[in-house]
Simulated assay, not measured.
Amino acid sequence: MTSSPAHKINDKIENKNVVISNDNSPKSSLSLSKVETKIMSRFCISIEDDPIILLNIGGIHMSTRRSTLMCIPNTVLALACTNSWSEKITHDNDGRLFFDCDPNLFQYLLNQLREWSIKRNKVFELPKNEYDQQRFRSLCYQFNFHRDLIDGIHRHEIFNKICPHILLDENSTVAIHAGDYRYGECRGINVYSSGIHRIILILNHDSMDKYNIFIGIIWSATPMQERSFESPTAYGWAGGKLVYLRGIPSSVLGYGGYDSDLCTNDTIELTLNCQLSLISLFNHRTKKFYQIPIDTREGCPFPWQVHINLYETDDRVKIINPT
């Protein structure tokens, strides 16, 4: 019986598939070997090269590679894997390293350490729950992780965009109001879309104690303007207990407990938490802490920029960068 055209086409397709699948040429084998090696290499590390560490975390058994615990030096977890401390640290009856802490929080920490080498922003993601955030911080401090990894990277920042009557000094780390009594915007050079970032500022004025200034953020694409704090993408703190949300003073005077405690020579820590979409202000002198949640859809989308607005003649703000 003569095959139909459809059968002939199917035969050709089947034969073609067979030929492709049975291509055992050296070139094909070599190419396949490279692909497989790339895929499988991370799962073929010998125990001798990177031992598996058995853990007992608050009664819950876990295990991970030694390299995971040692990826951040000088922490309790890293030191526990060194010859100096591996025998001295507490073990359970089965020989597992024992840490008496919350297993869920430790697992949250461990999962991030496993991905540490590929993380672009070297900071821990905090739990969403505020109560767990504080407990996670405490756990990280207990294990001697540096504060920058928990509460954000201390960023190198300089002022870049400024209004005409704002002058820059000291390699653009100092912004000075050089005009009459009028508002003047200045912004940092960096843009922020992910991670947690801390910027240290020092306020200064030769003849005033109370400091009338706006400190906050703004969407990087917002045009420069004198009264920049009134921009619909502006969030931050100003004088008179005013807190600006989307360029409008909050209807609650002293929003979030803010009492305009900014004085000359104060050291201010501005934290941009892109992970949780919020900014915070900490006054080192008064030890007061303020926080503003950011609406990234209707208010200030990413990327953000550090946003300062000066008013008084000779107002100065200095960025303190890490050495």
Rank of each mutant, 00 (worst) to 15 (best):
H177M: 15
I9L: 15
G247Q: 04
L262F: 14
Q112M: 08
N93V: 08
S251T: 14
I200V: 15
T296G: 05
L97R: 13
H177T: 03
N309G: 05
D148N: 07
Q134Y: 10
P51R: 02
G58W: 05
L55K: 03
N93E: 13
A78I: 07
Q291E: 15
S4T: 14
I162L: 13
R316P: 02
K8D: 06
G254D: 04
T222E: 15
E14M: 10
P223I: 06
Y181I: 11
D261L: 05
I202L: 07
P73Q: 10
L245V: 06
K12M: 12
Y141F: 13
S138P: 04
E14H: 09
A80Y: 04
L276G: 04
D314F: 10
S277M: 11
T90Q: 14
M70H: 09
T82S: 14
H197Q: 01
K287R: 07
I150G: 00
L203Y: 04
F214T: 04
I320A: 07
S28I: 11
F302I: 01
I57A: 01
I217T: 01
Y108H: 10
Y258N: 05
S21V: 06
V252R: 13
A80P: 03
I218F: 00
H177S: 15
S277A: 15
P51K: 05
W85K: 08
C101Q: 10
S277I: 07
E185D: 12
I47C: 04
L203T: 10
I89E: 00
I308C: 06
S231C: 02
V35L: 15
S193P: 03
D92E: 01
I218L: 08
A6T: 11
L69H: 05
Q275Y: 13
P223H: 05
P322Q: 05
V252H: 12
R135D: 07
N273P: 08
N10P: 03
E312S: 14
I217V: 07
G195S: 09
F98A: 14
S3N: 09
A178R: 02
S41D: 11
K119D: 08
L139A: 08
I60K: 13
G179Y: 01
Y183E: 12
S29I: 15
K128M: 11
I118C: 12
H61V: 09
L262T: 13
P103Y: 03
Q133T: 08
S63G: 00
D50L: 02
K241G: 01
S29L: 15
V317K: 03
E269K: 08
L32N: 14
K287E: 13
F136R: 03
L30T: 12
C274R: 07
N129G: 00
I217Q: 01
I39R: 12
K161G: 12
L97Y: 15
M62C: 01
E130F: 02
L168E: 08
A6M: 11
S63H: 10
I45K: 12
W304C: 04
I60C: 06
T271N: 09
H307T: 01
